[in-house]
């Protein structure tokens, strides 16, 4: 086990490369889920105003 963790003395490089990869992959899943949730929320917010109001807002902006 100790030998496995030491990685021939390259432990700092091997484990940091794998650790960083794991962190980025998890962050990608998290951000994809958040992105979808936010898009759903935005769509819901826009739906609350009736169509003519939305059209008016669009014209003003």
């Amino acid at each position: 086990m100790r030998e496995f963790l030491l990685m021939d003395g390259y432990w700092a490089y091997v484990w940091s490369a794998w650790g960083l990869t794991l962190a980025v992959l998890l962050a990608l899943v998290y951000s994809a889920r958040r992105h979808h949730r936010q898009a759903l929320r935005q769509a819901a917010e826009q739906d609350e105003a009736p169509r003519p109001v939305r059209a008016a807002v669009k014209e003003l902006s």
Binding site: A32, H35, H36, A39, L40, Q42, A43, Q46
Partner: peptide
Amino acid sequence: MRLRGEVLLRERGARWIRELN
């Protein structure tokens, strides 16, 4: 997963999204 969000963002106000909500 991201694609679903992007489709929603591009289709804001469409009827199918209101039905979805």
